[in-house]
Computed example of a mutant assay.
Amino acid sequence: MSLSCSLSTCVDGDAPTASCESQPSVHWAQGIDASILPRIFEQGTTIAVMQRALSPSLERSIQAQCDTERRWSFQWLGVPDAAMKRELRRSMPAPEQACPLVDDVVLLTQAMAMLFDTDTLGIRLRLLDSAMCPRFHCDKLPVRLVTSYRGPGSEWLPESAVNRAGLGAPSPDKPETLRQAHAIQRLGTGDLALLKGDGWSGNEGRGLVHRSPAQQAGETRLLLTIDPS
């Protein structure tokens, strides 16, 4: 079943630790089918994760784009159309091996456009050699899709592990945001995650707290983010 087709049906997903019945405050949804992603529309859900394994052809395409000294990036704001696909391919350092990766990005943008009923998306694909946002924070926008094609996935916190008084710019009088270091969750490489932010109507002050993962010296990370507008 294709990603875009399966988004029309919602199913229950498995939580990282315990069932929703035993933990009524659980605010995540997780599963191996794309139909888990629409659970982000549930009032109490602030992260929906589709776990997936990347195909060998996609992994080869990703590797080709990461075997470069150039820290390249692609940005697009608008309709995910044929022009976007051409520009995406043109931006890659190994365009002759780009098709599987380009096709996956296009599939995800089309699925996001359908899921959020919008023609306009903000798309960024970046090859990184350091953490962009190493501090725990929550986004002010309504929702964002994130996936790491290569390298470690984003880290996020269950609400029980968060002290929201510690969010924002650091200062000497602020407490630590992280209450329980053992509670940190990490997305797997290839996983698709919808992160609900403070800008989602009715979710003010409850945006998912997350951060960029630490990267080892010489390690690169290929990160895709998609923001519906």
Rank of each mutant, 00 (worst) to 15 (best):
Q216M: 05
D67M: 13
C99W: 12
G166I: 07
Q97D: 12
Q97A: 15
A183D: 15
Q75N: 07
I184R: 09
S2A: 04
P16L: 01
C20K: 15
K196W: 01
L224Y: 03
L7R: 09
D227A: 03
I226A: 01
P100M: 01
P172E: 11
V79H: 09
L223W: 00
V11M: 05
V106A: 11
G153H: 09
E204Y: 10
S154F: 05
P175W: 02
F116M: 08
Q216D: 13
R70A: 10
S91N: 06
V49L: 04
S22V: 15
I123N: 07
C10W: 02
L194N: 07
D173A: 07
Q51C: 06
A18L: 14
S212N: 06
S57A: 12
Q216W: 00
L54R: 12
D104V: 05
H182E: 15
D139A: 07
R206I: 08
E204P: 07
G153R: 13
M50I: 01
P142F: 05
C10E: 12
E176C: 14
Q97F: 13
I62R: 05
P228N: 02
S55Y: 00
F41V: 06
W72K: 07
A169N: 14
C133W: 11
Q30P: 11
S148M: 04
A82L: 15
S19H: 12
P134T: 08
S35A: 12
D191A: 07
P95V: 09
P93G: 10
R126F: 01
D104I: 00
V105G: 02
S229I: 04
L121E: 02
R124W: 00
L54S: 07
G188Q: 12
H182L: 05
A169K: 15
A214W: 06
K196Y: 05
S73Y: 11
D104S: 12
T118R: 03
A214L: 10
C138N: 12
E21K: 06
P158T: 06
A169W: 14
S19C: 15
R89L: 12
P16G: 08
L223D: 09
S130T: 13
L222T: 08
L3S: 07
D67K: 11
S160R: 00
A131V: 10
S6K: 05
A131W: 02
N203H: 05
L121Y: 05
Q63T: 06
I123F: 09
D119P: 05
G188W: 08
